[in-house]
């Protein structure tokens, strides 16, 4: 079993969603993670809040987050266990983030 990180990228992290919608996303994500955990293939995960974030540039410049300069933002990640990259990608397909057009889940092996 190898470990893979699934990185969620949102095209527009600033889109205003209704509280109900947010709650539905949360339920869906919990169910998705629950399904992975049930196979004992869930390692861990974290959300990445936008509250405290900085981008440090090469000339010691520190800016207030990546927004405005890039189109997509990273909303969070989970680490899972899988035999192959294909199995990991198959698991990523169920991620609710992918319901949003333009959103992606990047699957990378952890060495």
């Amino acid at each position: 079993m190898k470990e893979y990180i699934l990185i969620f990228r949102h095209e527009d992290g600033h889109k205003v969603a209704s509280p109900e919608q947010i709650q539905i996303w949360m339920k869906q994500t919990m169910d998705w993670i629950g399904g992975i955990a049930a196979q004992n293939k869930f390692v861990g995960g974290k959300g990445l809040p936008f509250d405290e974030c900085r981008v440090v540039h090469h000339n010691n410049l520190i800016t207030n987050g990546p927004f405005g300069e890039i189109k997509e933002t990273i909303g969070g990640y989970v680490i899972i266990k899988a035999e192959t990259i294909d199995e990991a990608a198959e698991m990523a397909k169920g991620c609710p983030v992918l319901q949003g057009a333009g959103n992606t889940v990047e699957v990378r092996k952890i060495s």
Partner: peptide
């Protein structure tokens, strides 16, 4: 609620 989404989910 966004903060809850980020924290509670995991």
């Amino acid at each position: 609620f966004l903060a809850a989404l980020e924290a509670w989910t995991y």
